[in-house]
């Protein structure tokens, strides 16, 4: 059984430019294992050297974060869509508040 995995644009360079890939597996771990077997360069972007999913990588089964389901053991079925979802954060430095005070009239 295969499920669709949505690949975000920054990682498509490792999936032969495919924006989605059909991958076999019964659980999220199996699907990601098979995905990174097929596209070896993808592995270091999803997993740390210790083999753990990187903290700024989220995996969603349809609309749900697998961290709140069964993590890697989360079951998948044929109609499911897995998404690799980057954490997006940033912002000005801690100095911003100080500058704001300095520039007030």
């Amino acid at each position: 059984m295969s499920v669709k995995v949505i690949i975000p644009a920054p990682l498509r360079q490792y999936t032969e430019k495919n924006d989605s890939v059909l991958v076999d597996g019964q659980t999220v771990d199996e699907v990601l294992h098979n995905l990174t077997e097929r596209y070896g360069d993808l592995r270091k972007h999803l997993y740390s050297d210790e083999g753990k999913l990187r903290s700024f990588v989220n995996i969603y089964r349809n609309d749900e974060d697998i961290r709140y389901l069964d993590k890697g053991s989360t079951a998948v079925k044929e109609s499911d869509v897995l998404s690799i979802v980057p954490s997006i954060a940033g912002g000005a430095t801690a100095m911003a508040d100080g500058l704001s005070l300095l520039t007030k009239d």
Partner: peptide, 26 residues
Amino acid sequence: ILGFYHSHPDHPARPSDYDREHAWPW
């Protein structure tokens, strides 16, 4: 999704170290 925008209130339009640490290539 080509990327993201955000504002820097009372701060230059330059990325901070925090921006860089949390950024993705491409």
